[in-house]
Simulated assay, not measured.
Amino acid sequence: MDIDRYLGPGHRMTALVTSHGLAVADAAVRLAELERFHARKEDLAGQLTGRWGDPHHVGLQTVRLRTGTEEIPEPWAELSLRVADVYLWRTEEPGRWVALGVADLDPCDEIQLLLVVTDTDPP
């Protein structure tokens, strides 16, 4: 599933890279490709760090768990269901966040390198 979604006022989610055929691939093939996606994430994170400084490394498991009992604002609710953790920068533009992560939580779906830009503070 390729995405470039406007998720509502003040946020957008884009798949920078999407695997093809991994939803039905052998587990070893998927794992090797997952490692490549994480390497791409690290490369891009280095470039973004040069622009905005060191990122926060944020695990999304607690956000994912909280979606069952409370309303989590977008894009954080959807992101937490797809990505285990993100690099997170606050940009020079007041109130704007950039998150970068690898969507790999659903083994029946393709792997994606996701970039999210939002005005919504992380929960």
Rank of each mutant, 00 (worst) to 15 (best):
R51Q: 14
R64D: 11
Q112A: 06
C108T: 13
E74A: 10
H38W: 12
D2I: 07
T49D: 10
V63H: 09
P55I: 06
I3F: 12
E93C: 03
D4A: 13
W89C: 15
A15K: 03
L113K: 01
P123L: 07
R66T: 02
E71S: 04
R36E: 04
R36S: 05
D85C: 08
P94I: 05
R82T: 09
G95Q: 11
T120R: 12
E74L: 12
D26S: 04
A25T: 04
P75C: 04
T18F: 02
D119T: 14
R51F: 03
M1C: 12
R30A: 03
G46W: 02
A103Y: 03
R82Y: 03
L60G: 06
H11W: 13
Q61A: 15
P73D: 10
L22I: 08
V24G: 00
R82H: 07
L88D: 13
A103N: 01
A77S: 10
E92N: 13
L79M: 14
G46S: 10
P9A: 13
I111D: 00
D109A: 15
G50S: 09
D106N: 15
V24F: 07
M1V: 13
T120N: 10
P123N: 10
L65G: 04
A84Q: 14
L79G: 03
F37S: 02
A77Y: 01
G10L: 07
H57W: 08
R66I: 00
T120W: 09
H38I: 01
R64T: 06
D4Q: 14
G50Y: 01
Q61T: 10
T49L: 08
E42F: 04
H11P: 04
H57G: 00
R51P: 00
W97C: 13
L100T: 05
V98A: 12
Y6L: 12
R82V: 07
H56M: 08
L65R: 07
L48V: 11
V86I: 13
R36I: 00
L100G: 00
A39C: 00
R5A: 11
H57Y: 07
E70R: 10
A99S: 15
T69C: 08
T49A: 13
G8T: 09
V116L: 08
L105D: 02
D2T: 06
T120C: 08
L114H: 00
M1S: 12
L79Q: 02
P55G: 14
I72A: 02
R30L: 07
V17K: 03
V17W: 05
E35P: 00
L81M: 14
T49C: 11
R82A: 13
E70S: 10
W76I: 07
V83N: 08
T69K: 05
T69G: 06
V63A: 09
W97R: 08
E35N: 03
E93P: 00
Y6G: 03
L60A: 02
L34I: 01
P75T: 04
E71K: 05
L31M: 08
L16M: 07
A103R: 00
L44V: 06
S19C: 00
L105Y: 05
G101I: 15
A32R: 15
E78W: 10
A15F: 03
H38L: 09
Q112Y: 01
Y87A: 11
H38N: 10
